[in-house]
Design a protein around this nucleic acid. Structure first.
Lengths: 156, 156
DNA sequence: TTCATTTCTTAACCTAGGTTAATGCATAAC
DNA sequence: GTTATGCATTAACCTAGGTTAAGAAATGAA
């Protein structure tokens, strides 16, 4: 079980790769994100200590996400095909459940509600990453996030 | 392995239940959806022949979705805890990948692009369900979908 | 069949959030 | 130190998509 030191800003995976790995974060902070056709960056998830980050691992589908470090980090790298890890279905189901909630939020909640949910769910990430990345995770612009924080945008 | 006949409109699972099952659709069409705080319905997924539909199965998390039949259907009901089905990790990973794409689309694409992607991905579902359900799946109103179809809303 | 309910579309108007641009701060690079 | 680059905020303006409402078409119930 090898661990690896990653410097802030270092890229662990690029979109389009065929052999993706699973990264278990032991310390620090990683993120996965994509770049759309217009060149815009969208953060898919943050992974602080204890979290797992991966993308299509164990399928023939090429990766669509980039993974890099937002802080100096130590990560455990699992080369193994996720489908071969019989015992680890539960984290998969948990990730499904997290993703399901994310879809639901994106479909049914305003940016304000999503922001409040984000703060409640990831209270310790808010101070560790720039505002523009939180905006990116929420699916809004940094300007809109500023409006929300200053109360210029209000839920009815 | 028991199969069950379900009449159109019949409810298979209600939000809030603790023991959820896995439904494998053999014929017909199921959907899962949620109802938000404002009482609005949001379709989470459609499941035609061959698809699997489930919600937090194998976790302690209560279900958040309703599941019902949009057509008379025959479904295989699996009572078994999803985590116990060692060999079936691949469908889980595939569902993760589908959900991941859904999040990405909701974050980065216009309603028009999402509609076109929906048609390309699920060509045979479009004719089988009412427009308002497609709108609900896309995260827009039926009125907005009408605008899109009549060309009154256009991508730049 | 008839009446009622739901579905789809159109139109007028409205708003959450995007875009553009300017300004003040931080970092980082030299 | 100075200069440059990136970050956050604000403001003016814009637009995708929501809301409300009304009419036509389809579906269902009795």
């Amino acid at each position: 079980m090898k661990s690896r030191r990653v410097k802030k800003g270092e890229m662990l995976q690029k979109s389009g790769e065929l052999r993706s790995r699973i990264y278990v974060v032991q310390s620090g902070l990683l993120r996965s994100y994509l770049i759309d056709e217009k060149g815009k960056e969208h953060i898919f998830m943050f992974a602080p200590e204890g979290w797992v980050i991966a993308d299509n691992t164990g399928t023939e589908i090429p990766t669509t996400l980039f993974i890099d470090a937002l802080e100096d980090s130590i990560v455990q790298v699992r080369e193994k095909d996720i489908t071969k890890e019989h015992q680890n279905v539960t984290p998969l189901v948990k990730r499904l459940s997290v993703l399901q909630k994310r879809v639901v939020m994106l479909m049914s909640s305003s940016a304000i509600d999503r922001y409040e949910d984000f703060i409640a769910t990831y209270p310790n990430i808010v101070q560790r990453v720039p505002q523009r990345m939180i905006a990116s995770y929420l699916g809004i612009t940094p300007e809109a996030l500023s409006k929300i924080k200053s109360g210029k945008l209000r839920n009815i």
